[in-house]
Design a protein around this nucleic acid. Structure first.
Lengths: 240, 240
DNA sequence: GGCAGGAGTTCTGTTGACAGTTTTCATTTC
DNA sequence: GAAATGAAAACTGTCAACAGAACTCCTGCC
């Protein structure tokens, strides 16, 4: 049961084990290896990762704070199950944050920053035309993170990122049609136009409109209702 | 050194020690008992609170996530020192969040919710006329939190609260003039008008304007540059 | 057949102890 | 007198073990 060898946890000592465990757990959650509702057994995780329960506990609490995990006293921690309503709230919040970043960036973006954003939009255009959904998806995340980094504060970047990770808890079946990619990238271009023109209000409005568009595209997707494999006899699932 | 008795930590067992310790540490930080830059010695805190290092460690990491504390590997955790620039960023973020909450609330506030907000504004009006700064301050926080709870999502409420706590790290010398209180409450009334009219855009604009006003009032205050008492020979301070 | 009750197991919450790193401080050297 | 050196102290990171709560599953009862 204890798969210690292949883990990267035994190499680095320059950062704490807890942060490494946190990264690994986050990867497992975002990849779907630990699906929403599944339990995070401290002992089992510790054994699996070849560390003791201390760092695992610390990592799990961190994920709780960032919103990926829900903890109940004396019962344990579970991968968060995001309802559609909560997901819509997340979109609204992200819209507010993107708007904030766009507004701030419009007044102070450097030539280099604008060029980088333009480049990303062009690359997304290529990906959309080639129907390369995975590549578009990755570029899209990069674009958003770059935008937030340039326009937002450190805190805003992290919060926005946390919210984005939350969405992967429900976004599962996101097979995107090329038409949707073009639509999405069109909104990116609108943001870029606002930034290039130095029009803070236009950039903000475009940013918010883009997230609202994403919200609509999300709603249009068929909901992936688990179909839990249930191979292992998991004992406890998340309550409520 | 070990003041165990008066602490409320020994009574409750229905929630984890770590959460109780976190609450106590937060209180100590917000009250200024642990000023920015000061070190959080795990051993000393554990002894002082009558628990072991585990829960203390967990609590400190939680505070790190929420922004009140900064942790350096192998060096420890320190109460965060907020620069003026960071504080201004926080105001901007809070403006975006309040705007988001006001916009959402305008469309769906119930009669009871509007009445509660109106009541708070009236009470603040009384406090401002009576020059009761402490009471105004408390009511103001309640108003903001109520507004966020009604209009925002769970996540937004917590994030907004975290940002507010961060501001106390620098806001220290906030002796408020009655004139400022009236000004601030006038902005509250503008928000209320927007909500009562069901005008989402007006409510949002008023919410953002209020936080911008708070930002200006913050900038107008004299900065309280520590004047660290340095009674005890504290060993280490926060680097950088 | 379904349901209440209780022993056994599992797992979390907490503690105390050990190892390694960082800091402190006295001593030496220039 | 100031900088370098090295030993001692302090503290963090990690681990292993214990106590108590929660869950599971079996047994007995209706």
């Amino acid at each position: 049961m204890a798969e210690i060898s292949a883990s990267p946890l035994h190499i680095v000592r320059t950062q704490s084990l807890a942060s490494l465990v946190a990264g690994e757990l986050e990867r497992m959650i975002l990849s779907g290896e630990l699906p929403p509702g599944s339990r995070l057994n401290e002992q089992a995780l510790a054994a699996r990762l070849g560390v003791s329960r201390g760092p695992v506990r610390e990592a799990v609490r961190g994920l709780d704070r960032s919103g990926l995990v829900v903890t109940v006293v004396n019962q344990g921690s579970f991968v968060r199950q995001l309802s559609v309503e909560e997901a819509l709230d997340v979109f609204d919040l992200r819209a507010a944050l993107i708007g904030y970043a766009c507004e701030r960036l419009a007044g102070r973006a450097t030539k280099e920053e604008l060029e980088e954003l333009s480049r990303l939009v062009r690359e997304m255009d290529v990906a959309a035309e080639a129907d390369a959904a995975a590549q578009y998806f990755a570029l899209n995340i990069t674009f958003h993170n770059t935008l937030m980094s340039m326009g937002g504060s450190q805190r805003a970047v992290r919060f926005y990122g946390d919210l984005g990770k939350e969405l992967t808890l429900i976004r599962r079946k996101g097979l995107v049609a090329p038409e949707r990619m073009r639509e999405s990238n069109g909104e990116h271009m609108a943001i870029l136009r606002g930034l290039l023109a130095g029009d803070a209000q236009a950039a903000r409005a475009a940013g918010e409109a883009h997230i609202r568009g994403g919200k609509q595209r999300f709603l249009a997707l068929p909901l992936d209702n688990g179909a839990a494999p249930a191979t292992a006899p998991r004992r406890r699932q998340q309550p409520a």
